[in-house]
């Protein structure tokens, strides 16, 4: 009886402690969102708990800036194109290394997996990108990462867990490799492809260092890198948004809000795919 009581008390303490931790994680994001939706003069005073009134004036102001609109467009484009390439390329090669007739398929797989464990370093990579004319080129964002070892491992492991009769019978029926891939493999791989899609999309949306290293073209700047430059100096935010009519902090908050919003909206619903992906990845084939 006494033990039950102390148990309940300590459990209560744990619940409260975890709640306080959750506040530490969530409050900064909440703060960014409520201030972005508050009038600039309220932001100057500081909005800490509830917005005194909801207004879109910060967004209206930020959206008037051509550079930011371009940034949103570039970030969306690299996320969509990059993720589709991940799905197609990693899906195809992940399936192909399971096809028994492919010569040296084990070596091809090993060659891909090995790329997870070594790197040539920044400079040789940078020089190669320049030589390949990928400097100031949209393909820089989507092509080098299109075949990614982690996704190939996920897909290959999943395809191997499927009953082999599925594709064998199709092959015997005279269906070509590509037909089997598009008509049979892709549809049955939906669960693992969902994992690859969420990982790929989040990675693409968050990427910015390739932009900093190799892209100077104003029409190819990603939202993330624009945000970084705005944070670096007020003069930079003036350069980006034109003359500052509202406080730099309000502009920065709103930019942060726009950049973080897709993750906040999508993550709670997609969490199970991330968890499943990381679990699949730890069971290596």
């Amino acid at each position: 009886m006494i033990r039950n009581k102390t148990g309940a008390v300590s459990r209560g303490i744990i619940y409260v402690f975890l709640f306080l931790l959750a506040v530490v994680w969530i409050y900064p994001l909440y703060f960014v969102v409520i201030n972005s939706f508050s009038a600039a003069e309220e932001v100057t005073k500081g909005v800490y708990f509830f917005p005194p009134g909801v207004t879109l004036e910060n967004f209206a102001y930020v959206f008037q800036t051509p550079l930011i609109l371009t940034g949103i467009w570039v970030s969306v484009a690299r996320t969509v194109v990059g993720t589709v390439l991940n799905l197609l390329f990693c899906g195809f090669i992940g399936y192909m290394v399971t096809v028994k007739d492919l010569p040296m398929r084990k070596w091809i797989y090993r060659m891909i997996v090995a790329t997870m464990y070594f790197t040539s370093g920044l400079i040789p990579w940078y020089v190669l990108m320049v030589r390949l004319e990928l400097k100031n080129n949209f393909l820089l964002y989507v092509l080098p990462g299109a075949v990614s070892a982690f996704y190939v491992v996920l897909i290959k492991t999943y395809v191997e867990s499927l009953p082999p009769s599925l594709e064998e019978s199709a092959a015997l029926d005279g269906a070509g490799t590509l037909t089997v891939f598009f008509k049979i493999i892709l549809p049955v791989c939906k669960p693992v492809l969902a994992c690859v899609a969420v990982f790929g999309a989040v990675w693409q949306w968050n990427a910015w260092s390739d932009n900093m290293f190799l892209v100077t073209d104003a029409n190819l700047q990603t939202l993330q890198y624009l945000l970084y430059r705005m944070m670096q100096s007020s003069s930079m935010s003036e350069a980006i948004t034109g003359k500052v009519r509202i406080e730099p902090m309000a502009v920065r908050l709103t930019m942060t809000c726009i950049t973080v919003m897709p993750i906040l909206l999508v993550y709670p619903f997609m969490q199970r795919f991330f968890v499943k992906g990381i679990m699949l990845g730890s069971v290596k084939g």
């Binding site: 900064p28 989040v202 973080v260």
Partner: peptide, 13 residues
């Protein structure tokens, strides 16, 4: 799942 730029932005704010 938030980029380091965003983390920086939040801590900066």
């Amino acid at each position: 799942f938030i980029s380091w730029v965003l983390i920086y932005a939040i801590f900066f704010i």
